[in-house]
C-alpha cells in the first residue's frame, strides 16, 4: 500500500540515531525537479533557541522515514555541510515551491502551493501539492507526467486540473485516476 504524507508533517520530525540520540529535526525537503524524488533533507537544531544546523541528510543515508521520526544509523549519516541541498537551488528549475503559483500548460492558474504531498516508500517522491485556490479552498492536487518546476511556478499538464482530493485518504485514488488518464491521452496521440 502506498502511504502519503504532507511535507509539513515530515518537517520538524526529529532525526534520531538507532542509539536513541536526537541529531536535530528536519528543516527542508529537497527534491529532484524532474523526477520528484526526494534527494535530501536539511536539518535544524531542536529547542527554542536553536537555528539551522547547515547539514544535509542524503536520502540514501536515511534508515527509515517513520510517522514519528526520521531514523538514521548514527551521526555519520549526516553530511558535514549542506552543499548537497544548496546546489541547483539557484539554477534554472530550482527553488522553494511553497508559495509559488501552480499553472496548467495551457495557462490556467489553479492556485498557490501551500504544501507538498510525499509518497513514502523505498524512494519517496513528491506526488502532488496542496494548493490554495483563488476561492481560498485548500485541495490536494496529484501531479504526474511532464511536470516542470521552478522557483517561480509549477507547470502541470492540463488534465491535472480535473483530479483533486480533499484529504490524504482520497489522494491515492485521485493520483491513480490522473495516471490512467495521462496514459490514455498518450495512447491517443
Amino acid at each position: 500500500m502506498t502511504a502519503y504524507m504532507r511535507a509539513s508533517e515530515i518537517a520538524k520530525k526529529p532525526v534520531v540515531t538507532l542509539a536513541g540520540d536526537d541529531l536535530g529535526q528536519v528543516k527542508d525537503l529537497v527534491f529532484d525537479a524532474s523526477t520528484g524524488s526526494i534527494r535530501c533533507f536539511t536539518l535544524a537544531g531542536r529547542g527554542l533557541l536553536a537555528g539551522p544546523l547547515h547539514r544535509a541528510l542524503l536520502w540514501r543515508n536515511v534508515h527509515a522515514l517513520g510517522p514519528h521520526a526520521v531514523m538514521v544509523r548514527d551521526e555519520s549519516a549526516l553530511e558535514k555541510d549542506d552543499r548537497a541541498a544548496r546546489f541547483g537551488a539557484t539554477e534554472p528549475g530550482g527553488g522553494n515551491v511553497l508559495g509559488v503559483a501552480i499553472t496548467t500548460r495551457s495557462g490556467e492558474r489553479l492556485g498557490t502551493v501551500t504544501d507538498a504531498v510525499v509518497e513514502t516508500g523505498r524512494t519517496p517522491v513528491v506526488a502532488g501539492y496542496e494548493i490554495e485556490t483563488d476561492e481560498h479552498r485548500r485541495v490536494l492536487l496529484p501531479v504526474a507526467g511532464p511536470v516542470t518546476v521552478s522557483g517561480e511556478r509549477v507547470l502541470v499538464p492540463d488534465a491535472t486540473a480535473q483530479y483533486r482530493a480533499g484529504d490524504l485518504s482520497g489522494f491515492g485514488t485521485a493520483a491513480e485516476s490522473l495516471r490512467v488518464r495521462l496514459q490514455q491521452d498518450s495512447h491517443e496521440e
Binding site: K27, D28, L49, S150
Partner: peptide, 21 residues
Amino acid sequence: LVVPLQARRRSGGVIAQGRRP
C-alpha cells in the same frame, strides 16, 4: 525577539533542484 526568529529559521521549505552541476 529571538524565539520567533529562530522558529522561523528552523522552519523550512520544499525545495526543487534543477540539473545537477
